[in-house]
Simulated scan of single mutants.
Amino acid sequence: MKSTMYFFCGKALHATLLSTIMLAGTGSAAMAESTHFDYAHQAEWNQVHGDRQSPIALDVNKATPDLDDDADDSIRISGRTSDAVVVDNTNTIQVNVLPGNFATIRGRRFQLQQFHFHTPSEHVVNGKRYPLELHLVYKAKNGRLAVIGVLFQEGAVNPAFDAIMRRVIRAGRAEPMREFDISQLLPANLSYFHYLGSLTTPPLSQNVEWHVLPQPITLSSAQLDDFHRYYTANSRALQPRNDREVLYHQETKP
C-alpha cells in the first residue's frame, strides 16, 4: 500500500486515527488503497463468476411490492458522523468514516464503512439514468454488506456535497472532516428498491444487499461540473437481472 500524507489546517493529524479511517473503507467502490482500474475497458475486469451482478435497471412496474405488514422494513439512518476523511482514491471521491455511524435496514443493524459517488448513475430507475449516484456502504457484524444508493438530479445547490468537494486535494492525499451530517445527502422519502447483487468494481463480489432510493435529491450544474473535474465516467455498465426478485418498499411513515 502506498504511503499517504494527511493535512488539516496545515497541521499533521494523528496517524493512528487516520489509518483506521482509511482502512475502514470497503464496498462497491474500491478502498482508498486499491489499485486503479479502467472504466473504459470493463470487459477486462477480473470478475467473480456469478449471475447476480450490479448495477441493474429498476422499474416500479416490474418490481414485487413489499407487502409484509408484520415486519418493519423501513430504513433508519443515523445522520451525523465525525472524524471522516475525504479522499480521491483514483476511482472515485470517497469519504471513509470511523466506527459509530449505524443504520437499521429491514430490521438489522449495519455500520457505515464509507460513502462515494459515481457519474453517471450506475442504476437506471424507472427508465432514467441520473447524473450522479451516491453509495453508502454498510457492514453487518457478520460481514454482510448492504449499500444504500441515492440519486442526484440537477437543481438546487446541495451544501453537504460542497463540504465534501472542498476537501478533495488530489489522488493519494486526503482531508479530514471533523463533522458531517449524512441526512443532508438523503431524500425526505426513504422508499427503496431492494435486490441481491454485487460490488460494482473489482472484485465484483456478490451477496451484496442493495437498497436504491428512487426519490432523487438535487445538486447544481456547477457542483456536477466540480465533480467532473475529477471523474466524468466512473460507472459500471448495466448487468442482466437474470430473474432476480426486486422488491419495492413504499415508505409511508413521516
Rank of each mutant, 00 (worst) to 15 (best):
M1A: 15
S3M: 15
M5K: 14
F7A: 06
M22A: 14
G27W: 00
A30N: 07
S34C: 10
D38F: 08
A40H: 14
H41P: 06
E44Q: 15
E44C: 14
Q47V: 15
D51C: 15
I56M: 00
A57V: 05
L58F: 03
D59L: 07
N61W: 11
N61A: 14
A63W: 00
T64H: 10
P65A: 11
P65Q: 10
D72N: 12
R76D: 13
S78I: 05
R80T: 10
D83S: 12
V85L: 07
D88C: 07
Q94H: 02
L98T: 08
P99W: 03
P99G: 05
F102R: 02
R106D: 09
R109D: 11
R109K: 15
F110H: 04
F110M: 04
L112H: 00
Q113W: 02
F115I: 03
F117E: 00
E122W: 02
V125I: 10
N126S: 13
Y130S: 07
Y138T: 01
K141P: 05
N142H: 10
V150A: 07
P159M: 09
I164D: 01
I164Y: 02
M165I: 03
R170D: 11
R173E: 11
E175T: 08
E175S: 09
I182P: 00
S183F: 10
L186K: 06
P187D: 09
L190V: 05
S191V: 02
Y195D: 03
L196F: 05
P202E: 11
L204Y: 07
N207D: 12
H211E: 04
L213P: 00
L213M: 14
P214V: 04
S221Q: 15
Q223A: 03
L224Y: 11
D226G: 04
H228V: 08
R229E: 10
Y231T: 08
A233M: 12
S235T: 09
R241D: 01
R244T: 13
E251A: 08
